[in-house]
Design a protein around this nucleic acid. Structure first.
Length: 544
RNA sequence: GCGCGGGUAGCUCAGUGGUAGAGCAGUUGGCUUUUAACCAAUUGGUCGAGGGUUCGACCCCCUCCCCGCGUACCA
């Protein structure tokens, strides 16, 4: 068999290609009769209201595709393909071609999904693509022969995966393309793709059938590629600073490290109740006890709480601990890390969020140094200098006059302060602010401030109106830690993780710790309005 | 949980108390450098589900399901 390319030796050609009957220049002697049978079969299909074996309610669209599949199979063509060695990814090939790294006339083997087609009669253009992008391909009857050409045109649909071999060329209009010599089906799509121009806009389809969103929406593809690369970059950044990545239990006896409702499960072998973790914190601190000076974990947490634009029950968290550091050193680290990501992926420190039409809806300026301010100072600036001298009734009145409806006098002072902070400071802070000296009731795992024990040595980093990252000087006194956990704020007093206290009693070095909500960080950097737009498969309610 | 908005062809969307519409996709025919290809013809619907009002309901009313936004919950 003559081999038209130098990319692969003929011995590596896959069987599907050889047996496909679709090969053009390399294949001789295929009979004309199978093609005629195919045409007859197709005409029969059209006249049948419901195909023999398929569901009677199936739409006509699906009948045609199933008929094509059956015909492929009847002809002994592997409609669902097999191994196909490629020389390039479609989008990467186009990019390299444009950049001049691939010359015109280069033999290539590519595979992907047929995304669109323009049938010119005796020649057809089609786009082949995947997450890397797409490249135009050109198939002409003169080159591959009438039989192969007609077979392609009549049984390959938009949505099918194909593999092909050809040479790069540039069309009259300057489009970098591949001139197809041989083509093989790799997978039949029995259902059509979404609208080629609008893609999927229905949110429910986007989230439930993310693959359709990824196939048809450029921006969705971009966001998830960026997400993946950012996470790799974060890991590299921390590895480069001698942080060791570890994995700690996601199934825990005592769900600690945060105050959130956990998901419960049951472990049959031990007949005991278990919980999906709400945070890895208490295990990472055990590793500080064990002598790891710098550790991090970047993985999922689970919280059994509401769904919203900013909340998904499983979300990705980075936690990192640095022995002998404090919260200010951790703030420096986070500031540097986020700026590093912005510069690498967003082209600079000024992030613009845009709407569908491309209008800038929000600008976030990450220029360093980032503002650092005490919690109380920010609350005073928002709610009045005398805020902390007010009694509860006066606070409620003040809060309501400032537009907060959901405040009541029966709430504790710190709760009223917290609400004012969330509504009047956090939600209005788009440029980065490290909020420091937070009331200790809110943070039982951090060290109290030496000068003012009513506050703790922590920061809460707010960007884009959301808390993106907390950082602590970690509490390492086991006696104080027990007391703080016993007296923590909140409705439910949590069960204390005795194993954690036991570990502290063996001595934990002073350390700085951080958490970064990766999903929210990516929202901020990509301009996504909903957490669902940065999580591939966000939680939705089951459909009955 | 509550409030508001939405659910119509495979996809994107119109629509009116009186026979269900368009574009794309699909099907058929034409076209060998097109690119939201083009030209011509054409198929395709449980109008989210179930009840009710009405001579007649996609439309009005009730209940339910799902999605979005807000709110509540969420150290």
């Amino acid at each position: 068999m003559p081999c038209p390319t130098s990319i692969l030796p003929c011995g590596q050609m896959d069987h599907a290609l050889d047996s496909s009957n679709l090969a053009g220049s390399c294949q001789e002697g295929a009979a004309a009769s199978p093609f005629l049978r195919w045409q007859n079969a197709r005409k029969q299909v059209k006249s049948l209201p419901a195909m023999n074996e398929t569901e009677p309610t199936e739409s006509e669209l699906l009948h045609f595709r199933r008929a094509k599949l059956e015909e492929l199979q009847k002809r002994g063509i592997a409609a669902f393909g097999g191994k196909f060695e490629v020389s390039h990814d479609p989008g990467a090939l186009r990019a390299q071609f444009i950049a001049g790294d691939v010359a015109e006339g280069t033999p290539v083997r590519i595979a992907g999904r047929v995304l669109s087609r323009r049938d010119m009669g005796k020649a057809t253009f089609f786009d082949l693509g995947d997450i890397t992008g797409r490249i135009q391909c050109y198939l002409s009857k003169g080159d591959v022969g009438e039989e192969s050409y007609d077979l392609f045109n009549q049984q390959i649909d938009i949505g099918d995966f194909v593999g092909l071999e050809g040479k790069t060329f540039v069309t009259r209009r300057g489009e970098r393309s591949v001139h197809v010599d041989r083509l093989v089906p790799l997978s039949k799509a029995l259902r059509p793709l979404p609208d080629k121009w609008h893609g999927v806009t229905d949110k429910e389809i986007k989230y439930r059938q993310r693959y359709l969103d990824l196939v048809s929406n450029d921006r969705s593809r971009e966001v998830f590629v960026i997400r993946s690369r950012m996470i790799a970059e974060i890991r590299g950044y921390l590895h480069g600073r001698n942080f060791l990545e570890v994995e700690t239990p996601m199934m825990q006896d005592v769900p600690g490290g945060a105050a959130a409702r956990p998901f419960e499960t049951h472990f049959n072998a031990l007949d005991q109740q278990m919980f999906l973790r709400i945070a890895p914190e208490l295990y990472l601190k055990r590793l500080l006890v064990g002598g790891f000076p710098r550790v991090f974990e970047l993985n999922r947490n689970f919280r059994n709480e509401g769904l919203s634009r900013r909340h998904n029950p499983e979300f990705t968290m980075l936690e990192a601990y640095w022995a002998y550091a404090d919260f200010e050193q951790m703030a420096d680290l986070v500031e540097d890390l986020i700026c590093h990501l912005a510069q690498k992926f967003c082209g600079g420190l000024v992030i613009e969020h845009k709407d569908e039409e491309g209008n800038v809806t929000r600008t976030i300026d990450l220029t360093r140094p980032w503002k650092r301010a005490p919690f109380r100072e920010l609350v005073r600036a928002a709610a009045g200098d005398d805020w902390f001298e007010l009694d509860k009734a006066a606070k409620v009145e003040r809060a309501q006059s400032l537009g907060l409806q959901e405040v009541e006098a029966r709430e504790e002072h710190y709760e009223l302060d917290q609400k004012v902070f969330e509504k009047l400071v956090e939600e209005k802070s788009f440029n980065p602010v490290f909020v420091t000296h937070v009331p200790k009731e809110l943070v039982p795992l951090a060290k109290q401030n030496a000068a003012d024990p009513s506050v703790v040595d922590v920061y809460e980093l707010v960007i884009n109106g959301q808390e993106i990252s907390p950082g602590y000087s970690e509490l390492n006194d086991p006696v104080v830690q027990r007391e703080r956990l016993e007296h923590q704020a909140g409705e439910e007093v949590q069960k204390i993780d005795e194993e954690f206290i036991l570990a502290l009693e063996h001595g934990m070095p002073p350390a700085g710790g951080i958490g970064i909500g990766i999903d929210r960080l990516i929202m901020m950097l990509t301009g996504a309005e909903s957490i669902r737009d940065v999580i591939l498969f966000p939680q939705l309610k089951r459909r009955d």
